[in-house]
Nucleic acid binder design. Structure first.
Lengths: 248, 248
DNA sequence: GATCCGGATTGACGTATATCAACACTGTGC
DNA sequence: GCACAGTGTTGATATACGTCAATCCGGATC
């Protein structure tokens, strides 16, 4: 049953509300199925599990603030976590939404700097926290793990650059469209599809660097143009190709 | 003499025009003094040097385009390289300016994806290119190297998030000010200081996500407010504390 | 049902920043 | 000295977006 949770990694497949597994799974099983740790042998997993602690966090829990020191990395078992930047004036900008199977905080772990972002649960959640010490010693012990870690960080960097690109040289409308289409193969003939926003519209808007109001208007422009239909967080795309081409 | 080149790593210390060392240095010496590779023993350096090639590139050379496959990473010996995103419509956004001692392209190396950015020399430059194969085998051989690499990528990620933050929740003016003050200790009593823009104003503007025109206007607003003086690329800051506080 | 609440929408308005176009400066080659 | 190219400035105008404030809607709660 660990598989059910361990593999639901794509954002669009993320459940909106926290779902407890029918039977509780062991941290060990969960760790062993993480992309980062798969293909390590069980003695390695055992060592890592020794440095791992469970965190049960109700909705609205702040896991860490900007400025807190970093003692390891987190991974989501179930629930959803928002990573966000905050301004002194109380504004906030969502960097990323993390769901089951995803992990965060690896990068700061390797630096002697405090967190830059703040992490808060959006739903009741459970996470695992892996101490940096066991990560470091595992890197020394197992080069394959180091390579996985390197690949993981690289991927994060890649996404961050994609975001930077989106924000600096694409319009709000273009950002919305590519967000809706993000895990759609470019030549997919599908025509129609459906996506579910992983969080309230205000949060998604911030993730896209828009105000809630502007996001709302953009969606309605797309509805107006008969390209999508919106019910609550469910968005039906009636013509993928036309949507992709809209004002592009 | 390798030290002279190998240590000039901070952007503000970067020379505007390419300066050839009085005596040419060996790639080996240069590699050995790179932050990434320091404290590796000479046999390691030797192996890496074996996978390294020299690149002499006159101003305006495109080292790689977006979409090109990645065969290793680059490091600047002398000169200056611009990393930029490009829009289909011919627009471009400078991500980073790289000077002597800095390296780029490590992240893509670990992914099976093509470059997202384009790299072009802004001055006559010389670089070293290190093949990914020797990097991978060195990771397997020497965990300290893996950790350095991890730290390097993490730092890059950290900067990228700082950029994202600047672009999404700071005004153009604030971006200019923090750019000017970027390697100034926060409690520095210095009062006055002087920085030299590493590239033509249009390039720096793009780096800050501004148009050249807007950048020009912002600088003139600061001149008007008697906070800075500008001669060509040289900027004298007459009151660091006041500048930092300006419209903050 | 009445009330309340968070989330979402809608409208009127303001503004930071881009765009377009003209021009000024500075050095270089002839 | 003159032409020229690269760079930077300045002004007029446009616009994509944010801000503020007034609802509105659907679901809990009593």
């Amino acid at each position: 049953m660990a598989l059910i949770i361990g593999t639901a990694a794509t954002p669009s497949a993320m459940q909106t509300d926290a779902i407890m597994p029918a039977r509780p799974i062991s941290p060990r099983d969960f760790l062993a199925n993480l992309p980062l740790l798969r293909q390590l042998d069980s003695s390695d997993i055992e060592r890592i599990a020794a440095g791992t602690s469970e965190i049960v966090a109700p909705r609205g829990t702040v896991l860490f603030h900007r400025g807190d020191p970093c003692r390891g990395f987190h991974t989501v078992v179930y629930g959803q976590v928002k990573l966000a930047l905050q301004t002194p004036q109380g504004g906030e900008k969502v960097i990323e939404l993390m769901g089951p199977g995803q992990s965060f905080g690896e990068a700061v772990m390797f630096l002697d700097k405090p967190y830059m972002v703040c992490a808060e649960t959006l739903t009741d959640s459970m996470l695992l926290h892996v101490d940096k010490e066991v990560v470091f010693s595992e890197i020394d012990r197992e080069p394959r793990f180091a390579r996985r870690m390197l690949a993981g960080l690289s991927l994060r960097l890649h996404h961050l650059i994609a975001d930077l690109e989106a924000m600096s040289l694409r319009s709000g409308m273009q950002r919305v469209i590519t967000y809706l289409l993000r895990d759609e193969p470019y030549d997919g003939e599908a025509g129609v599809m459906s996506v579910t926003l992983p969080a309230p519209k205000g949060i998604v808007a911030s993730r896209l660097n828009l105000t809630q109001e502007h996001f709302s208007r953009l969606l309605h422009e797309l509805i107006e143009a008969r390209l999508i239909e919106v019910h609550k967080r469910e968005i039906r795309i009636t013509d993928v190709a036309k949507l992709r081409a809209y004002k592009a």
